Amino acid sequence: MSTTLTILPAHEAFDIGDERVDQHEKVVYCRDDASGLRAIIAIHDTTLGPGFGGTRFKAYDTERDALHDVLRLSRGMTSKNALAGLPFGGGKAVIIGDPATQKTPEILRAYGRFVEALGGLYVSAADYGTNSDDLDIVGEETSHLTGRTPAAGGSGDSGPHTALGVFVAMRAAAETLWPEGLKGRTVGVEGAGKVGGSLARLLVDEGADVIVADPVEAARRRVSEATGGAVRTTSSLDEEHVDVYAPCALGATVTVERARALGARLVCGGANNQLPTQDEDAALHAAGILWVPDYVANAGGVIHLADFERLGRTSDEVAAHVGRIADTTREILTHSAEAGMPTGAAADELVAARLAAGRG
């Protein structure tokens, strides 16, 4: 049995899909034979502070797929944290395996030891396939994480703040398209989880006509009950016509074809990595479809974790910080319109400016 931590050389310049390993500061392969752990930690940029991002537990088809995912996710966290005004850089981790059958306390503890071995260069949180209870176990081996249960000193569920960030970003974008904003507009929320469910409630209160899609009937029922039956639910948005498409499940669903099929003029949601490729940013812009980059809109969760658990801010301060996502959205959309460039490119220019200021 062996435990190994392998760091890819910084000059390792090979392509993984649309990502390059040498554009990340550190990529770490973690292997622990005793527990069966196979994980990758990617640290993209620490200009503004330690890499900060969640841990995804997922059954990937190949190790290459896992590497591609973690590289994209960590790069996205650099942008998210910079645009959110947080003193953190971009980092992300993936544990390779099926969380339903392979997630064990031994694997989580082994993962915690690898996070600890990085000495604070990476601060972890939860992501797809992991939750606060898992982080309590990881936290037995490292203090470099956020998002544990309140009983273990954590700040509780960040989902409502993620939803609030998506909502204020969506409202700010909608106001550039329609005088009445979201009121009376049909919004299709894809995913009835914690973020999608909370977002649906906010949209109902705003006066939107809300459709929530999820293949799981129990999830649809929970959202319907939570909104007093004010939303319409369905297993899929495929046959619907909406003004706003809000992807709040897994990523890579936002394409020109998808938005056109739905009739959406605005795309804004809580899912990560919404575009299958970066080329889709320009395609959406050319088609006249307004996309709010996911790393802008869904920053409420990371703001929640960083503000409460790392920066010691109050509930009111956290809510105000999340509310400022609307200002960032307006700044990006204004720059996009004035420069005639896609919204993702406009957001990336703002990220580059903030990183340059950090280096200075």
Rank of each mutant, 00 (worst) to 15 (best):
R265Y: 09
R265S: 15
L266V: 10
L266D: 04
L266P: 01
V267W: 05
C268K: 02
C268Q: 08
G269K: 03
G269W: 04
G270K: 06
G270L: 02
A271M: 07
A271L: 07
A271V: 05
A271D: 08
N272S: 01
N272D: 01
N272C: 01
N272A: 01
N273F: 05
N273H: 05
P276K: 13
P276S: 06
T277I: 07
E280N: 07
D281Q: 04
A282R: 12
A282T: 15
A282I: 07
A283D: 14
H285C: 08
A287P: 06
L290Q: 12
W291R: 12
W291P: 00
P293G: 11
P293Y: 10
P293V: 11
P293W: 13
V296P: 14
A299M: 04
G301S: 04
G301M: 06
V302C: 03
V302I: 15
V302G: 09
V302D: 08
I303N: 05
I303M: 12
L305M: 15
D307A: 14
F308S: 14
F308K: 09
F308E: 08
F308T: 12
E309S: 03
E309I: 00
R310L: 07
R310V: 00
L311D: 02
G312E: 07
G312S: 14
R313C: 05
R313K: 15
T314R: 10
T314N: 12
T314A: 03
S315G: 13
D316G: 15
E317C: 04
E317K: 09
E317F: 01
V318W: 00
V318Q: 03
A319T: 15
A319V: 14
A319Q: 14
H321I: 02
V322F: 01
V322D: 02
V322S: 02
G323Q: 01
G323Y: 02
R324N: 08
R324H: 15
